[in-house]
Structures are given as C-alpha cells and as structure tokens.
C-alpha cells in the first residue's frame, strides 16, 4: 500500500488516521491469510475469525460478508474492510450505523424489513444459541416487535420506522459500535515496522 492509498483510505473513512489504517492492515493481513494465503478475506476466513470455526452456515455471517463485499466478487478487499469498519467507529455518525443495520436485516433487500425476515433471523439466532422456543412465544416476540416498530401497521418496517424504532431503543445499535476502533494502533503495534508516516 502506498502512502497515497493509505491517505485516501484514511480520508474517506473520516474516522481513521493513516497510522490507524496501517494498524487495521495488520489485522486485515492476519484474517486474510488464515486459510487461503492470497491477501483477500474469503467468507470462510471471516467465519473463522468470528466463530473460531470455518465450517457451517450462519445467516448473519452471510449478511455481514455481503455488506462488506461492496463489489460483490466474493472477497473482502482491504478498501472494503476499511469502508465497512469505519461505520463501527465510536465516532461514526449514528445515521450510518442505523442504515447499515437496516441493510443487514433487510435480508431480501427489498427496502423493508418484513415479518418473514425477522422470523427467519429469530429462528437463526435460536439455532445458533441452541435455544428452543414454542411457536406461540416466537409469534408473541414478533407481534410485540412489530407493534412497537411497524407504526403504520403494514406488516413491514420501512427505513423511517426503523430509524424511529432504534432511536427509542438505542441498545439495538450496541453491536454497531466497536470500542476497539478507538485504539487500534495500540492493539496492532506491529504496524510501526511498515509505517509510511510517523504521527
């Protein structure tokens, strides 16, 4: 990566300094060489980093990977990694976090989060955590959620409703902020061996 690339990425992110982009490159290198040593993050590598196993299917991993992979070419390039992670910075605009979460949960990318999609995600999280719920309780969870979020009662959550909903329940955005990003140069100090700029 040239200094120009680093500076452009830092500038585009609006959150990271050049040194922080370099520190994130250390993390990127580690993930992108974990299974296929080609300097690109494949889904199995993201899965290994998040789940400590590279096998099995996970709906949420698929969604995260899909949103990171802007070019939709089946790998996460470093630029895409920085773009997506910048949304998770503690200082990133909350509007960006709200939109990113909406896109995550809008499984079929119809511009709405539909009841069917929420059902699918709840079933997926129950399977992931090996919890069983009765159909009645599952329906009750969905009813309650839609009573609260779907203010125009059309059976789906539009972007505006989503925004009002998460602003009323800010804890739903907790996983959209990574406190680690405040201090990446300390977490990955080895960037200093390759740095293009000294702060």
């Amino acid at each position: 990566l040239s200094f120009r690339d680093l500076a452009r990425l830092a500038d585009e992110s609006r959150c990271f300094s050049v040194n922080e982009v370099e520190a994130l490159f250390e993390l990127y290198k580690k993930i992108s060489c974990s299974i296929i040593d080609d300097g690109l993050i494949h889904k199995e590598e993201l899965q290994l980093a998040l789940f400590k196993t590279s096998s099995g299917q996970n709906l949420f991993l698929d969604r995260v990977f899909d949103l990171f992979d802007e070019k939709k070419n089946g790998v996460i390039e470093f630029e895409e990694f920085i773009h997506a992670l910048s949304v998770f910075h503690p200082l990133a605009p909350v509007e960006d976090k709200i939109n990113f979460a909406f896109r995550l949960y809008d499984l079929r990318q119809t511009g709405f989060i539909e009841r069917e999609e929420v059902m699918q995600m709840v079933i997926a999280i129950l399977m992931e955590s090996h919890v069983e719920l009765s159909d009645d309780l599952l329906e009750a969870i969905l009813d309650k959620t839609f009573e609260d979020a779907d203010t125009d009662r059309d059976g789906k959550i539009c972007q505006e409703e989503w925004k009002e909903f998460v602003l009323r329940h800010p804890n739903l955005l907790k996983n959209m902020t990574l406190p680690y990003l405040r201090d990446v140069t300390t977490a990955f100090p080895s960037f200093v061996f390759n740095t293009a700029v000294e702060d």
Binding site: L50, L59, L104, V118, V122, A124, K144, T145, H169
Partner: peptide, 25 residues
Amino acid sequence: RPAVMNAFELISTSQGLNLGTLFEK
C-alpha cells in the same frame, strides 16, 4: 402474558453480528 423480548434484541446477540471478536487475540 410474561414480558416478551424484542426480536432485534435477540438477533443482535448473534456471534456473526459481533465484530468485536475480530479484535480479540
């Protein structure tokens, strides 16, 4: 009826959505 959780509260606990794991050594 007992208090019921918000669906998105449940969903947001997925390991796949908690990217902090990437930074854990």
